[in-house]
Write a protein that binds this DNA or RNA. Sequence first.
DNA 1: GTCTATATCATGATAGAC
DNA 2: GTCTATCATGATATAGAC
Lengths: 228, 228
Amino acid sequence: MAELRHVDTRERILDVAERLFMAHGYEGTSMRQITGGANVNLAAVNYHFGSKESLMQEVFRRRLDSLNEERMRLLDELEAAAGDQPVKPSAIVEAFFGALLRIGGDESRGGLTFLRLLGRTLTEPSLFIRTFLAHEYKAVMDRYKNALFRALPDVPKAEIVWRFHFMLGATSYAIAGTDALRLLTEWDMSAEEAVDSLEQLVPRLMSFLLGGLRAPLPQFSPPPGAPG
Amino acid sequence: MAELRHVDTRERILDVAERLFMAHGYEGTSMRQITGGANVNLAAVNYHFGSKESLMQEVFRRRLDSLNEERMRLLDELEAAAGDQPVKPSAIVEAFFGALLRIGGDESRGGLTFLRLLGRTLTEPSLFIRTFLAHEYKAVMDRYKNALFRALPDVPKAEIVWRFHFMLGATSYAIAGTDALRLLTEWDMSAEEAVDSLEQLVPRLMSFLLGGLRAPLPQFSPPPGAPG
DNA sequence: GTCTATATCATGATAGAC
DNA sequence: GTCTATCATGATATAGAC
């Protein structure tokens, strides 16, 4: 039973840390809040994870591994089904962002709590978090980027990368900043409407992302001497 | 001279605080870092601003007042020029986000430092910051929302509000998370390319935002009993 | 393996001299 | 208005008992 208790303690710490990091950010959350919320001793975090930074990384790794595996698998399937043809842009976007958004409805993978935490993390002030995230995402981003390059051969690669940025931003804010955004737009919503809109967020967002991805290319003055 | 010195001290604190809050976030920045960087005494922040929270609010107020005044003025002019006709959606979007992005090139209004700070702030963990921001933005958001309602009479208002959210998110990440996003996409860029892409960000982003705003409406199953 | 107790340092804020 | 000195608290991390 000692082993099971050990696992429970670890998981309990991770669950509470996930929730508190989401609510107050990394710097705004103390070890005392975490261990207090998990009903474990103050020293337990250092014992199980070594440091607060390592705890934060473990909070992400526990969820991101399965998310990114699913993303890889989805793209594998799409490419297999397409044969020699490139995969459709809408299918690529749906796979990447759909896999992310489906976490929100799956408590066993973190649910809305982790989704919001993740959405906030690209703008986390702490550098070690951003670099860690970038490392965790590298392989997946490479594959999806290249899939989009093949799917949109007439669009310059730099443009695609930028639009991928914009899509990430729109999605992250949509899930991370819902309370801030509601405050901004003073949008009064009944509980029923809130549930509806959560379910409708995915199609709404997908329409927006695809509209942006396929928008007409911007016109800027070409650099001097560039060929017409 | 005592009065001038006073003003200088205040402004110096605000400048340093703006830069540090941008780099390390609110919780991650200490009063000692701020006063040390501004070469003023530790007690100066409390004397001039009362508290760390009030300092943070003043950092924003100093820049946001002129930004939001410009936004109001721009919309005034657009509506005057349009007469009885609704203003074009592209002009509304260009006014709202263009006014924001032009700050990046104007050091006297905070430049890139403030732009990045602001972009990060909608997802700031500290609740008092988000509620303060929402209050500062309320009047402007109301006017632009209503302008979009008039400009897009065939699009449901809820859809417009959501798409405004998405546009804010894409823009905020584009300016706040540039380093994180570059890490994510492993985009190697020369210094020259970085300057170019900064100038080209505005047209790139505008194309994306307008593409998303005008995307086909999403299809979801209508609620039971809703009229066709 | 887990907890108590504590070390060491940083934090925001203030009182009071000048 | 600005300074020094200090308070009370909270931070992360660790040493050592059991």
